[in-house]
Amino acid sequence: MVALTGEELLAWADKTAEQWRKLLEAHPSLLAVPCDVAGVKTVGELMQHIVAAQLRYAERLAGSTATAYEEIKYGTAAELFATHAQGMDLFRALLADPAYVWDEEVEFVTRRAGTLVATRKTFFIHAMTHGIRHYAQLATLVRQHGVTPDWPMDYLFMGARWA
């Protein structure tokens, strides 16, 4: 049994992001809330960190130059999720390419961890779960500021339904 395909993992990351897009569009002031996760100062900067990682990993896996981090806008939900969509589109194209070699090792220079060597699959899985992890941190933070996300976030709810 294959536990989780790349397409399923991407769908979970994309669905989670879509829920956050809706929440941030309904509560744009959340982008200015102070935040100390991942060395940032605001929720907007954490969102930039999430979507920047997705886009920049997707670009490098596609063989393109990574967009400069500073160029990734985070002033509005629309700006943030346009970047998210760019990254997801690149990942979808890679997943759809039957000739793409996921087990090949590649070298990436990261912003904080230095130069890393891993398989393309490892970098893809990191890009997907990195956002999921930060969205969980974000859920706690926004609840502390009076906004409660109203959707189930666990992977369980990608395929389960209530009886």
Rank of each mutant, 00 (worst) to 15 (best):
Ala11Gly: 04
Phe123Leu: 01
Leu80Asp: 00
Leu46Glu: 01
Phe81Met: 04
Asp97Gln: 13
Leu61Gln: 05
Leu9Pro: 00
Ala118His: 14
Ile132Lys: 03
Ala62Ser: 14
Phe157Arg: 09
Ala139His: 10
Pro149Asn: 10
Pro34Trp: 06
Met1Thr: 03
Arg120Thr: 02
Ala58Ile: 02
Pro98Ser: 12
Leu90Glu: 08
Met1Gly: 14
Glu71Ala: 12
Trp102Pro: 05
Lys73Val: 07
Gly159Arg: 15
Arg60Tyr: 05
Asp14Ala: 04
Arg120Gln: 06
Ala32Lys: 14
Met158Asn: 07
Val109His: 03
Phe108Pro: 00
Val117Asn: 13
Lys22Tyr: 03
Arg21Leu: 12
Asp89His: 08
Leu55Asn: 03
Pro149Lys: 11
Ala32Met: 07
Thr119Trp: 06
Lys121Cys: 02
Thr140Ser: 10
Glu71Lys: 15
Leu141Asp: 01
Val109Asp: 07
Glu59Thr: 09
Ala160Gly: 08
Leu30Ile: 06
Asp97Leu: 11
Leu46Met: 13
Ala52Thr: 01
Val51Ile: 06
Ala3Asp: 14
Ala13Ser: 13
Glu8Gln: 13
Thr76Ala: 10
Gly39Ala: 07
Val109Ser: 08
Trp151Ser: 10
Gln86Cys: 07
Gly44Ala: 13
Thr76Gln: 08
Gly39Asn: 05
Val142Asp: 05
Ala136Val: 07
His145Tyr: 10
Arg111Tyr: 10
Thr115Asn: 13
Phe157Trp: 15
Glu8Leu: 13
Gly159Tyr: 14
Gly131Val: 01
Met153Tyr: 03
Asp103Met: 14
Thr83Trp: 09
Leu141Asn: 03
Lys41Gly: 09
His145Arg: 11
Gln144Ala: 15
Ala139Val: 11
Phe81Trp: 11
His126Val: 05
Val2Cys: 11
Trp102Glu: 09
Val147Arg: 09
Ala13Phe: 03
Gly87His: 02
